[in-house]
Amino acid sequence: MEGLQIAACVFSFISLLLLIIAMASNYWIINLNITHSGLWQICDAITCLSYGMEVRDYIHATRAFLFMGMIAGAVSFFGLCASFYHSHIGSVSIKPLAMSASFAAGVCSLIAMATFTGMYSQYIVLGRWYGWSFGLGWASFPLFLITGGLAWK
C-alpha cells in the first residue's frame, strides 16, 4: 500500500512540474524556427514581447484552466505527501481530497489543452507547428489521471 502512495506522490510531482513548465514556457507554437510563442509572450531570436491587451479569448480560457489545474495539482501533491504523516486534517480525510484534486487537475488540463488545440488548429498554416511546451501540457493530463488512480487505492 505504501508503494502505491509513493508512486502517487512521484506521479503527482511530475505531472505538476510538467504543467508548470508548459505554462511558463514560450514554445507552444513555433513559426519556421524564426519566432515562437506561448501563452504569455511571442519571441523572435533576440527579444520577447508580452501579448498585452490583444489576446484572443481561447488563450485566456487556456490560461485559466491551466491555472486551476495547477492549483488542484498542488493540492493533490501536498495532500499526498501529507498523507504519509496524517490521515485527516480536522474532519477531512486527506487521501480522498488528494485523489479528487488530482482528477480535477486532469480534467482542467484536458479542457485547457483541448480548447487551445481546437481553436489554434484553425490558424495552423504551412511553416507553423506545435512546440514542446504544448506537448508537456498534453502529457500532464494523463499523468494527473494516473495519479488519481494510484491515490484511489
Rank of each mutant, 00 (worst) to 15 (best):
A24K: 09
A139E: 02
Y27K: 15
Y51V: 01
F65G: 05
I94K: 04
I94Q: 07
K95C: 12
V75R: 08
I21R: 00
L126W: 14
P142H: 05
G148Q: 07
F77A: 11
L18P: 01
F144Y: 10
W28G: 03
V107I: 15
H86V: 15
G90M: 12
N31S: 13
I29R: 09
S76A: 13
S93F: 07
T47P: 02
S76T: 05
I146D: 01
S83Q: 02
A112D: 11
L143Q: 06
L150P: 12
L16V: 00
A139S: 11
E54C: 06
I59K: 00
M23H: 11
A101H: 09
I29F: 12
M113K: 09
A24E: 07
N31W: 12
A114G: 04
D44A: 07
Y123G: 05
T62S: 07
I111A: 04
C43P: 07
C43H: 07
M99D: 02
G148M: 08
K153D: 07
S50L: 08
C81R: 03
A139D: 04
I124R: 10
H36M: 13
A8E: 09
Y130H: 13
M119G: 01
Y130E: 13
L4H: 14
L110Q: 03
I46P: 02
A151R: 12
T115L: 04
R128N: 07
F134D: 07
S102R: 07
S87P: 07
I124S: 10
L18F: 11
G73D: 00
L49H: 11
L110A: 14
C43G: 09
A24Q: 08
Y27V: 08
A105Q: 00
M99K: 15
A139L: 14
S15L: 01
L136G: 02
M99N: 04
L145I: 15
L19I: 00
N33W: 08
W40E: 04
A112V: 03
K95T: 15
A101Y: 08
T47N: 13
Y123P: 03
G148C: 04
A105G: 03
M1Q: 11
I20T: 02
H86C: 07
D57S: 09
N31H: 13
S87V: 01
L19D: 08
L145C: 10
M23A: 11
D44P: 05
G79K: 08
C9A: 14
F11H: 00
T62M: 06
Y58E: 01
M53S: 14
I20S: 00
R56S: 12
A64Q: 11
L39S: 04
